[in-house]
């Protein structure tokens, strides 16, 4: 399988989150995290570059993203939602593209949200994640996902 690299915008926030305060262990973790933030906040940068002063780009292997099941799932979901095409679920090029584009949008948002303050950003990140919790009552999500999983199970088992 040919190696696919995601070329992405790497702001100072990456260094801060990985090298300086070790909130994340790897840059690709920040990349996926920010891609999720980008989608969540409806911030996407087509072409994958932000206007920020730190116009540095870097590359991360798509394999790294795939190495974690839930990261892989996120990439597939992003591609599907972005294109509306089920084929995008398994289209590596689309995965690569949407990760870079949403991560760039997420980077912009994250800079505004918790990138400005000096010092350890850990609590700011936690505060941000918790602030989004109220949007979705815990029970609703679990119930809905459970229902969908069961529907599939039933169908696969031939109950329908």
């Amino acid at each position: 399988m040919p190696k696919i690299n995601i070329k992405y915008q790497q702001g100072e926030l990456y260094q801060k989150l990985v090298d300086e305060y070790e909130v994340f262990d790897h840059y690709y973790e920040v990349l996926v995290f920010l891609a999720v933030v980008g989608y969540r906040e409806d911030r996407v940068r087509r072409g994958g570059l932000t206007d920020g002063d730190d116009g540095k780009t870097s590359e991360a292997g798509l394999q790294n993203v795939y190495s974690r099941d839930l990261f892989h799932t996120v990439a597939a979901c992003l591609a599907f939602q972005d294109t509306g095409d089920p084929e995008a679920l398994v289209d590596r090029e689309e995965h690569k593209r949407v990760i870079a584009e949403y991560a760039a949008g997420g980077l912009e948002f994250a800079r505004e949200q918790f990138g400005q303050n000096a010092g350890d950003p850990t609590d700011a990140v936690v505060t941000y994640i918790k602030s989004r919790r109220e949007d979705e009552p815990d029970g609703d999500i679990e119930g809905e996902l459970k229902r969908i999983v069961e529907s599939f199970d039933d169908e696969m088992m031939g109950y329908e």
Binding site: F24, V36, R40, R132, I141
Partner: peptide
Amino acid sequence: IRNEIAENGFVPLAMPLIRETAAD
């Protein structure tokens, strides 16, 4: 806490994405 962020921090944020995709 940092470990938890690195491991699962994206999960709660990804929920709308996951839910919409699951519904589709």
